[in-house]
Design a protein around this nucleic acid. Structure first.
Lengths: 121, 121
DNA sequence: TCCTTATTTCGATGTCTGTCGATACCTGTC
DNA sequence: GACAGGTATCGACAGACATCGAAATAAGGA
């Protein structure tokens, strides 16, 4: 974390293609790609966020309303803060439907992370 | 070093079974599992660490000497610090061979992370 | 032994992050 | 329009973290 330039990640949409990255065994990451992927891993580097993400991913259809997942032992503002981080990293998308807000996993982004970790030759 | 009460995190060996975790779609993570996995994601959540990891993983044989990978734009003590974090998270193992220290990726641990992110039903 | 090179550890310092309560915003209902 | 419930933002604070230079440790060679 070299400076405090607020990078302001572009919020990825599920429909976006995620070109990054080939399996990590295929060659070393460029600094730019490393920055991009590190931001995604960082989003999952907190136990509360990982549990929120897991609750959404394991819900039928890969989506859930905040009211269904908010019980993770922290306050409501904190839940909202963590969901925002996951959204900014591109791992989740959100949609308001009437009173409730639904969060969905962004399959292509998650798949890019999984692909990066594929160690097969 | 290991004279007396050094905390001595259990550095995972490649041979260790990593029971954690089924695909994240299969059900929500327990708080304990979330803690465990979050620590691994955290290790990869820094661009410098990701580049170091990438350099090692993409080296022939999945191993590299520190001298081969230290050129990532930060001071040498900082490189050492990051490698230690990766080792503590179980993602790398290290071995001294004469003058140089060689780092290897721990395939089973990386595979556990990739498996967690598998969104297929 | 002493010297050189490779790597890790230590201590200081500034920055980032998770958490909270208070409050604002959005939407459906009365 | 006013109200109520669900969700997001703000402001503040404690603890954790990244980074560096300096010093320590380890191994090999003169």
């Amino acid at each position: 974390m070299s400076k405090s330039e607020v990078v302001e990640l572009p919020v990825l949409q599920d429909s976006d293609v995620v070109p990054c990255c080939p399996p990590i065994t295929a060659g070393e990451l460029s600094p730019a790609d490393a920055e991009k992927m590190a931001a995604m891993f960082k989003a999952l580097s907190d136990p509360v966020r990982l549990r929120l993400f897991s609750k959404i991913a394991s819900h039928p259809g890969g989506e859930a309303c905040v009211c269904d997942i908010a019980d993770v032992g922290v306050s409501q503002p904190t839940v909202s803060h963590h969901l925002k981080k996951l959204r900014e990293a591109g791992l989740l998308t959100s949609e308001r439907r009437g009173t409730w807000v639904y969060y969905q996993v962004a399959p292509s982004v998650v798949a890019a992370m999984a692909a990066l970790l594929d160690l097969r030759d």
